Computed example of a mutant assay.
Amino acid sequence: MTFAIKAGIRDPRAAQFDFPAQKTMYGGKRIAVGDMIYLFASENDGGSGLVARGVVTAAEPTPKRAGVERQTPRVSIRVQRTALAKQALGRAELKPFVDWGDGQPQTELNFKFYRQATDKIVGLSDAAAAFLEGCF
């Protein structure tokens, strides 16, 4: 399976990234070592959207906190960068894609990342992964 993460990324050119205790949605909790992941630098933290692609080299579920009834699953991952994005793709480029039922990969990305703007790891459809690959 292919995944994407939107998180604070200070140096998109780093060879390796550590993302501790990241929120997961839309199948993101299934991320595992060896999975491909697209990295989006969160605009909430001054980022610009899609910055890199990588491979997950470590993945560990974060234990649930005691006494908290409803919790979003979280996972800590380490990613080895394999490529830098050559094309801009962020909130501004995805904003026009709001017809949630149109089946376009851009709409899927807009829905998963920007409908609820929190940072997170998400699972991607094959169509969305193929679309993102065109940015490299």
Rank of each mutant, 00 (worst) to 15 (best):
Ala129Lys: 09
Gln71Val: 09
Arg13Glu: 03
Phe97Gly: 10
Gly101Tyr: 06
Arg13Asn: 01
Glu108Pro: 11
Ala4Gln: 04
Arg115Leu: 12
Val51Gln: 03
Asp99Gln: 10
Gly28Phe: 05
Arg81Leu: 02
Phe131Gln: 05
Arg74Asp: 04
Phe131Cys: 06
Glu43Lys: 05
Leu39His: 03
Pro73Gly: 07
Gly103Ala: 15
Gly49Gln: 03
Phe111Met: 05
Gly46Tyr: 03
Ala7Trp: 12
Thr82Met: 00
Asn110Ser: 13
Asp45Trp: 00
Ala88His: 06
Val51Phe: 02
Thr72Tyr: 08
Arg30Lys: 11
Tyr26Ile: 05
Gln106Val: 13
Leu94Met: 11
Pro105Gln: 12
Arg10Thr: 00
Asp18Cys: 01
Leu89Asp: 06
Tyr38Asn: 01
Ser76Asn: 02
Asp45Ser: 10
Gly123Trp: 04
Glu60Cys: 02
Ile37Tyr: 01
Asp35Met: 04
Glu133Ala: 15
Arg78Glu: 04
Lys95Phe: 12
Gln104Tyr: 05
Gly47Met: 01
Asp126Val: 06
Phe17Pro: 08
Val68Thr: 10
Gly134Lys: 13
Ala32Ser: 14
Ile9Gln: 05
Ala127Pro: 10
Leu89Gln: 12
Ala83Ile: 03
Gly46Gln: 03
Ala128Glu: 13
Asp11Ser: 14
Gly67Lys: 10
Gln104Pro: 07
Pro61Val: 03
Ala129Asp: 13
Pro96Glu: 08
Ala15Ile: 00
Ala7Ile: 06
Lys29Gln: 15
Asp11Phe: 02
Arg78Trp: 02
Asp119Val: 11
Val98Ala: 11
Ala130His: 10
Phe131Arg: 10
Gly103Arg: 13
Arg10Asp: 01
Ile77Gln: 06
Phe111Pro: 01
Arg91Phe: 15
